[in-house]
Amino acid sequence: MTTPVSISLTVNGERVEAHVLPRLNLADFLREHLKLTGTHVGCEHGVCGACTVRVGGEIVRSCLMLAVQVNGAAIETIEGLSDSGEIADLQAAFRDRNALQCGFCTPGMLMAAQDLLRENGKPTREEIREHLSGNYCRCTGYHAIIDAVENAALARTEPQA
């Protein structure tokens, strides 16, 4: 039974059929099998948040899910959110505020930030800090990230003149 298991799912809206070993985690599946390398691997034990993706619309740590568990699920990665334009404004806010340096945490950080903004349109700085508290960034010191998310939230709630 350590033989490959067949799974069928959608990734960024595309249908994917695969045979995967049970031990393969979702992060490695996305990166190594589907070449979606925007999902990063920082710790492989669920602490750093770099591998955050959406499964069924909810953020999860992809290093803490097995590929076999996402059979039938809809996965969205940073590539999907970028191509669809869903987070274009958030990405622009990060760019304008230089809310990233090396960029390795950024895909996971954007996933978590978008998750917050979908459920709370007007988060306080404390709420932003709290929602992102499971995503490690060594470069920025977080201040710029908090600013960027706050700016994006404000822009979303204030309709363009």
Partner: peptide
Amino acid sequence: VPRPNLDRLLQGRASYVSD
């Protein structure tokens, strides 16, 4: 002025050695 290389980092299109 924004860094010119940010978009590839923001869109998951960077090339790290681990990739």
